[in-house]
Write a protein that binds this DNA or RNA. Structure first.
Lengths: 350, 350
DNA sequence: CGAGGCGTAGCAAGCGCTTTCTACTGGGGA
DNA sequence: TCCCCAGTAGAAAGCGCTTGCTACGCCTCG
């Protein structure tokens, strides 16, 4: 049957306790004994029983990463960065921790389910990425869950999500979506655009609201009226950008610029414009958000706001592992950088 | 302190055994008793201890997914698909299984480490994606590990990787990389191209070799000499495509087409051509592989081979959960579909 | 020469759950 | 009326590991 610690102990002629200590390396063991034990481990092809070990030690080496959609590079990049920092010393046997990437699909129910699952596994840490749902009951439920996770000893880090009042000891690395949105629209207004369409993300999400608010702030500051007909909501996908662009064109033929909720949506917008025979930025300028890797390969290259996804994820990972100090107050704002490229230009003259 | 089964039992005035049975739902419990137990669970905010439960039951609800790079949509899409099928009935408490996505970075050492970690956790199943390393010792080590995982009760599914002799009971869903490569180059040759550059992936990987072999097969079938100077190797990234394209142009100014190892590499190639002032496909045709979502948004849209990543991942997930029959012989080949788009055309006339 | 330490190793008590086996009920058939 | 069985609940034995405490040398210092 399966080899247990006791088998190894027997073969090495030591007690199980000694084997455990050799494996965990947190207690002095004579070199000769250690050798003998390690050889026995090797001979028997022994693999530690994780659950048993977690139970006895009341800790686990699982780190949960919650993402909306792992197929979206926005989340993939963050998840990858978190994971790259998850490993390393300070841990238990092997020093390796496992990252559990959980796909919530943006649904608060699934988010809650996964948090419970992670709590069940006594996860060492949990990193929650992506914007939050702005629904009071859900927010409270998730906040409560996060607090309980924290109480149970898991370190909780929010990455790209505003802090939750309900989970005071969770560290939050928040993206400056509002500021980014503001700068993007400022840029377009500066070029002379006045009729700017906005393709927002799904309603009820903090990310969507903040980016949109930045846009509106810029309009207000420039004294440009915010025509509600020029703002459309939809999911964060290409299709939404495509459809919304056609709709915007229908509503406002004099449109000279489109700001999209993110780069993927922007690509959809570009496709729609091309299909309509409009040139970018000659007829209509387009801007995205996030600066995902493919944005630079769009033709023309996409003007967008670069979010340091990798850096933010890595930092979240380090904080989750206790390898980096928490920001003061447990909150840090991560700023985006405006990347002006070919997809935006001065509006055509009438 | 933390609430345990016993606490719930006490509050519901039943034995711990009964609580366990209510939670697992695999033993008759009178409705009234169940009610009482569930209320107690709710009142106390009880969360099952995963490690303890896994230890006692000798199973776990973890499913491992090994990927080379989670930030790459190629893997993100598959991981997402696997995960979408991982959930559901047939499982234990809650019926929810957790997908553990492990980033190996393509390194066999990390691959091995993660497999050990999964073995440690007594994973219910393991899905390994991406091509294999063609290094005998490593292949043997990984094969052996997979076999032992299988012996220990984990279901093992390879997705997009050729079967391993060392792990006979692992199911393999293999991509027809050779056939896809063949069709892609056939298409180019059919258009009249004769000087075709090939930007391959890293050496020593099955994916790289198979795609390249398909290309060479097509050349041979058409009686076109395979000039070794026109094949370059590099990583699966944009940079590699960019650099290799410049090098190809240097080596062979009469080049009229470039086949890239995958879409990302192809995008790099396009960027290099644009920077050189060459038009696509007027001066040089470009083709990719995989048909990742952004490929259609390239300008011109990329000719490529569509791999049904989502379908394959979903199928792998279902097989891993025992919800779909294994293919005969444990091996199935997944074919790609040639997507002819704007980036390829007839070569310019000299 | 004896006492106190230090360096190692073992004992044994759990960690919180699952599950087998046993026990108790009430109802129906002989 | 008695027995047996179906239905339900409990007792208790682990699952394989960690770790506090104890034990045993042997060395060094007084």
């Amino acid at each position: 049957m399966t080899v247990t610690l006791a088998d190894v102990a027997a073969r090495a002629q030591v007690s199980p306790a000694t084997v455990s200590r050799v494996l965990n390396g947190n207690y002095p063991v004579a070199a000769a004994t250690r050798e003998r034990v390690l050889r026995a481990v090797d001979d028997l092809d022994y693999v530690l029983n994780g659950p048993a070990s977690s139970l006895a030690a009341a800790t686990s080496d699982l780190v949960g990463i919650l993402v909306n959609d792992i197929a979206d590079p926005f989340f993939g990049i963050m998840a990858s960065a978190v994971q790259s920092e998850i490993t390393g010393p300070g841990g238990r046997a092997g020093g390796e921790r496992m990252a559990v990437v959980c796909n919530t699909g943006g649904s608060p129910e699934r988010e809650l389910t996964y948090l419970t699952l992670l709590q069940r596994q006594r996860a060492a840490a949990v990193v929650v990425t992506g914007g939050a749902i702005e629904d009071a009951p859900h927010a409270a439920a998730i906040g409560g869950k996060l607090r309980r996770l924290g109480d149970a000893g898991s370190r909780v880090v929010l990455c790209g999500r505003p802090p939750t009042g309900a989970a005071p000891d969770a560290v939050a690395l928040t993206f400056d979506n509002r500021g980014g949105g503001r700068r993007l629209t400022d840029h377009l207004l500066g070029l002379g655009h006045r009729r700017v369409g906005y393709i927002a993300g799904p309603t009820e999400r903090t990310t969507t609201r903040h980016r949109l608010e930045g846009h509106q702030e810029a309009l207000a500051a420039a004294g440009v009226a915010d025509d509600p007909l020029l703002t459309l909501h939809g999911p964060y996908d290409r299709r939404s950008g495509y459809d919304a662009t056609l709709e915007l064109l229908r509503r406002e033929p004099r449109l000279t610029a489109i700001v999209a909720a993110n780069d993927t949506v922007a690509l959809g917008a570009c496709a729609a414009l091309r299909d309509r025979g409009l040139s970018i930025p000659g007829d209509v300028s387009v801007a995205g958000f996030d600066d995902l890797p493919f944005s630079i390969d769009a033709v023309p290259a996409l003007t967008t706001v670069r979010l340091p996804l990798h850096e933010a994820g890595a930092r979240a990972g380090r904080i989750a592992m206790g390898r980096e100090e928490e920001p003061p107050g447990g909150i840090a704002t991560v700023h985006g950088e405006l990347m002006v490229r070919g997809s935006t230009g001065a509006p055509r003259q009438h």
